[in-house]
Amino acid sequence: MSEPSHCRVKLLAKPEVSLSQAVASSPGLRSVGWQALASLTLKLNPTLTAEVFSSDFPTRYGTVPSYFAKPRAYGMGGVIVESGGVSLPKVKVYHTVQPLSLCLIHGYHANFYGQYEVAEATVKLMEELGVKRLYILAGYALEGEPVCCAASTRSLLEEAEKAYGLKPGYVGPFLGFSGLLAGLAGNHGMDGLCLFGKTKPTPESPERPDREASEKLYRKICEILKVAP
């Protein structure tokens, strides 16, 4: 059964070299991963490579939090206004070549009907850019280490512990764009390593930033990428 695609990818600047690694995040628990990715983006000053649009991207969500997608909770379509300008909601894909070749993915949560399609389109784009390994940044709210991990393969888990002292610590569902990206990347033969920064949930405002947790996560991804924080 096939349906018309609600997703389109606009390629803006294809890098001349293959980007073997990618770091991704999306708005989520206490914005731990999202803020860490913002810090990394600021640090590396990357070029905008591509944008992924979807007619299933609301600007006002029908669910709280935004990544808790449910059937029939379509949300409302619209544009994002910033400094008087307007733009469509989108996944933004950036790249850097120096000091390291890296792809940076700023995710956006679709409603229930677009989540898989958007994640699949983003994974295909990563494949075209040559990505072999994906790091996902997110938050977790359990007792444990300041940063714990999950991976697409056992060998990657072993590597994460040996090389960076990372251990599994979160068990359960990983919701939304970032979770699906990690799962689908694995299906496309990419290595996926998720880094979860420990935080405390604030149910009244689930995405309220936890800057301390983000900072710890940022330092860990910098250590892995060998970038000075």
């Binding site: 056992r154 888990l157 990983f174 694995g186």
Partner: peptide, 13 residues
């Protein structure tokens, strides 16, 4: 729209 993180730390669609 989620994956499962198992006790072993593996990601499963």
């Amino acid at each position: 729209a989620q994956v499962i993180v198992t006790k072993e730390g593996l990601i499963e669609l």
